[in-house]
C-alpha cells in the first residue's frame, strides 16, 4: 500500500506521540529495575554506577522482612487453594444444576463480593475474627480473603462453565460414569483454564493486599510482605530508597513468575464475567 505524504506525516506524528506516552509509563518501571542495584539510589532515575547487590544482601539480612515473604506465601497459597476448590465446586453446581433462582443467587453474590473484603466491612470482620479467637493467625487472613474473593471467583467460573457444552459430562454418564466420575474425568480438565485464571487472580489479590492483614494480624512474625515493607522506612517516616527498591523487586517477582508460568503452560485466556 502506498501512503500519501500527509498520511505518512500523520503516521509518524502518531507513533511519536504513542512512544512518548509509552516512555512516561515506562520510566517508573525503569527506576524499579535500576534502583535496587544502585547503592546510592534516590527517587530520580539514574543508571547504577557501579552495579551492586549490596542492597539485596542487606534486605536478606533483615529476618523480619524475609519471614514476611514466607508469610505472604502461606496466606496467598492457603487462600487460593480454598477459593479455587470452593469456587470450582460451587460454580459447577450453579452452572449445571437446575436450582430455582440460581441466576439471582449469582448476581447477589457478585454484589456482595465487593463488600466482604472491602474496607466497609472492616469493623464486622474484625469483630467476627476476634470472637472466633482467630486474631493474629494466618487462618484469619486466609478465611477473610476466601470469603471476599469467592463470590467473584464463582461468577467468573460459572460463566466459564456455562460456555462448556453439557454434552461432555452427558456423554461420560451415558458411557457409564457416575456424576462424580464425570466431573473429575471430563469436566474438571476442561474447566482447568478457568480455574487457573481464578487462582492467578486470587493469588495476586492476596499477595498485594495490605489492609486486611494489617488489621487482623498483630505480631511481626505473622505479617506479610506488603506490611513488612514499612520496616524500610526510617523512624522519621522517610523511605530508605535503596532497601525499599530491592525489597519491592523481590516482592513482585512471584507474581511475575506465576504469570509467566501460567502463560507458558496454559496460555492466558482471560474470561470476563459478563456475557454478551
Amino acid at each position: 500500500m502506498k501512503l500519501t505524504i500527509p498520511a505518512f506525516v500523520g503516521r509518524i506524528a502518531f507513533s511519536a506521540l504513542a512512544a512518548l506516552i509509552g516512555a512516561i509509563f515506562a520510566l517508573p518501571l525503569l527506576w524499579f529495575l535500576f534502583a535496587p542495584f544502585n547503592a546510592r539510589a534516590e527517587l530520580g532515575l539514574a543508571l547504577p554506577d557501579p552495579w551492586t547487590l549490596n542492597n539485596f544482601v542487606t534486605v536478606f539480612g533483615n529476618s523480619y522482612a524475609v519471614q514476611a515473604l514466607w508469610n505472604s506465601f502461606i496466606q496467598a497459597v492457603g487462600g487460593v487453594i480454598l477459593v479455587g476448590a470452593a469456587a470450582t465446586l460451587a460454580a459447577y453446581a450453579l452452572s449445571r444444576s437446575s436450582i430455582p433462582g440460581k441466576g439471582a443467587v449469582t448476581y447477589i453474590l457478585l454484589l456482595f463480593s465487593s463488600v466482604v473484603s472491602g474496607s466497609a466491612a472492616m469493623v464486622p470482620i474484625f469483630l467476627i475474627v476476634s470472637a472466633a479467637g482467630l486474631m493474629d493467625t494466618h487462618l484469619a487472613v486466609i478465611l477473610t480473603f476466601a470469603g471476599g474473593l469467592l463470590p467473584t471467583a464463582m461468577f467468573i467460573l460459572r460463566d466459564f462453565i456455562d460456555s462448556i457444552p453439557k454434552s461432555y459430562e452427558e456423554s461420560a454418564m451415558v458411557a457409564g460414569a457416575s456424576p462424580v466420575q464425570a466431573f473429575f474425568d471430563v469436566a474438571l480438565p476442561v474447566i482447568r483454564p478457568g480455574i487457573v485464571v481464578v487462582v492467578v487472580w486470587g493469588f495476586v489479590n492476596i499477595w498485594g493486599s495490605f489492609l486486611i492483614p494489617f488489621i487482623l494480624l498483630r505480631s511481626d512474625s505473622n505479617m506479610p510482605a506488603s506490611v513488612a515493607i514499612y520496616s524500610f522506612y526510617s523512624e522519621a517516616g522517610t523511605p530508605i530508597v535503596t532497601l525499599l527498591a530491592a525489597y519491592s523487586l523481590i516482592y513482585s517477582l512471584p507474581v511475575i513468575v506465576l504469570y509467566l508460568f501460567v502463560s507458558w503452560k496454559f496460555g492466558f485466556r482471560f474470561f470476563g464475567g459478563i456475557k454478551a
Partner: peptide, 17 residues
C-alpha cells in the same frame, strides 16, 4: 441414572474429551 441403563450414545457435537 444414565450410567445404569447400559446404553451408548453418539452426540451431535461428538462430545470428544
Amino acid at each position: 441414572h444414565p450410567k445404569d441403563r447400559n446404553i451408548a450414545m453418539v452426540f451431535q457435537d461428538y462430545a470428544l474429551y
